[in-house]
C-alpha cells in the first residue's frame, strides 16, 4: 500500500542518524574517543498494516592508540668540515596515533666505536649541545626554519621535519670520521599549545571509555610500547687534506748551477697538495719569509698555479718586505699546485 513512500521517509531519517556519527577517517585511524553506535530501523507488517520502529545499540568508544615513527630524511650523512658550526641532521617525526599529541625531542651522541647504522662506526662527538628547528617545508635547514623545544599539538598523519642542529664540529678530524646523532621523540599529552604536555599513562584496565594504549614499535635505541621512537643520522667529516713542501735549486751562478755561493740565483718552490678523497680546498694563502741572506728577484716575480716545481704557473703573487705571498684559488683532491719565486744569495 503506502510502503514505497514510507521507505523514503525512513531512508532520510536513517541518513540523519549516520551523520551524527561522522568523524574524520584518517590513515592512523578513527580519532580516539569517537563513539560507534549501531542504529537500526525496522519495518514490518502485522495483519497487513505497516509498522516501523528503531533501536540503538550499546555505544563503543574508540581507545587512544599512541604510536609514532621517527626516521632520518635520507640515507646520506651530513657532510661537515672540521671546525664547522651549526650543522644539522634531519628527521621526520610522524604521529601515527589516533589522537593529537605533543612530542618531546631529545638528541644524543652515539658513543665512540658504536654502530651508526649504515654509516659505519661512531668516531667523534659534536660539542656544544643541540638545538631543534621545525622545517619550513623545503626539507633543508635554513633561515626560514623555526627554533623549537618540542613538537606542539602534532595531528595524526601529518609528518614534520625536525632539524637537529649541533653547535660545533671539532677541528682536526680525519676525513670520513663519523658522529652518530640519535633523535628520540616521546609522545606526551596534548597541552593545547601551552608548553610540553605531561607524561602519557597507559591504561592498566580496559574501561568502556577511552583508554590509552602504547602501540609504538622499537626504534634505534628504544623498546616497543614505550610511547617513544628513536632514529639515528650521522655527520661525516669531509675536509681538505693539505700538505706543503718547499724545495730550492740554483738556477744561475758563476760556477754553474749547483753551488750555493754569493751571487748565485736560487729558485724556491712551495708545492701544496690535497690528498686523494678530500674535499676541494679553496683560497689557500701561501706565504714565505725570505732569510736575510738572500734578496728577492723582482724581475722573475712570484708565479702561482703550476702543476709542479719545473712548470711555473701563470698566476701572480707578490712580495713585500721579504715576505712572499700567493693564493691558490681552488685545489681539488689529488692535485698539486706550486708557488715559484727567485732570490739571489747576498
Amino acid at each position: 500500500m503506502n510502503r514505497t513512500r514510507l521507505l523514503v521517509g525512513t531512508a532520510i531519517s536513517a541518513v540523519a542518524g549516520s551523520l551524527l556519527l561522522a568523524s574524520p577517517a584518517l590513515a592512523a585511524g578513527t580519532q580516539a574517543g569517537s563513539t560507534i553506535t549501531n542504529n537500526v530501523t525496522v519495518q514490518y507488517q502485522v495483519g497487513g498494516i505497516a509498522q516501523t520502529q528503531a533501536t540503538a545499540s550499546n555505544t563503543v568508544t574508540v581507545d587512544r592508540k599512541v604510536d609514532l615513527v621517527v626516521a632520518r630524511t635520507d640515507a646520506s650523512a651530513t657532510i661537515v668540515t672540521p671546525g664547522a658550526t651549526a650543522q644539522a641532521v634531519s628527521f621526520t617525526v610522524t604521529n601515527t596515533s589516533n589522537a593529537t599529541l605533543d612530542f618531546q625531542l631529545s638528541a644524543s651522541q652515539r658513543a665512540d666505536g658504536e654502530s651508526v647504522d649504515i654509516f659505519g662506526n661512531d668516531s667523534f662527538d659534536t660539542t656544544g649541545g643541540f638545538t631543534y628547528y621545525l622545517d619550513d617545508g623545503d626539507g633543508v635547514f635554513d633561515a626560514g626554519d623555526t627554533l623549537i623545544t618540542h613538537l606542539n599539538a602534532l595531528a595524526p598523519d601529518s609528518p614534520v621535519v625536525v632539524h637537529v642542529v649541533a653547535a660545533n664540529v671539532p677541528s682536526g678530524l680525519a676525513n670520513a670520521s663519523v658522529a652518530g646523532i640519535i633523535l628520540t621523540a616521546t609522545a606526551k599529552e596534548n597541552n593545547n599549545g601551552t608548553g610540553l604536555g605531561t607524561d602519557l599513562t597507559q591504561a592498566t584496565t580496559n574501561t568502556a571509555g577511552m583508554d590509552t594504549i602504547f602501540a609504538d614499535a622499537a626504534g634505534f635505541v628504544d623498546g616497543a610500547r614505550t610511547a617513544s621512537f628513536s632514529a639515528i643520522d650521522a655527520f661525516q667529516v669531509f675536509g681538505a687534506t693539505l700538505s706543503a713542501t718547499k724545495s730550492s735549486r740554483i738556477v744561475a751562478g758563476d760556477f754553474g748551477t749547483g753551488a750555493f755561493i754569493p751571487g748565485a740565483t736560487i729558485e724556491y718552490c712551495i708545492a701544496v697538495s690535497n690528498a686523494a678523497g678530500s674535499a676541494t680546498a679553496e683560497n689557500i694563502v701561501l706565504s714565505d719569509t725570505l732569510p736575510s741572506e738572500v734578496t728577492y728577484v723582482d724581475a722573475f716575480g712570484v708565479l702561482v698555479g703550476g702543476p709542479d716545481c719545473n712548470t711555473p704557473g701563470t698566476g701572480v703573487g707578490s712580495e713585500s718586505a721579504g715576505v712572499v705571498t700567493g693564493t691558490v684559488a681552488s685545489l681539488p683532491a689529488d692535485t698539486t699546485q706550486t708557488l715559484i719565486f727567485r732570490a739571489t744569495i747576498n
Partner: peptide, 22 residues
Amino acid sequence: YRNTGAEAVSDLLLINPVPATV
C-alpha cells in the same frame, strides 16, 4: 528480533546504517 505478539509478523525489513568510522 523476536515476535512477542500473538499474530505473525510479515515482511520484516531491517535497515542498518553503517557508522562512518567503520
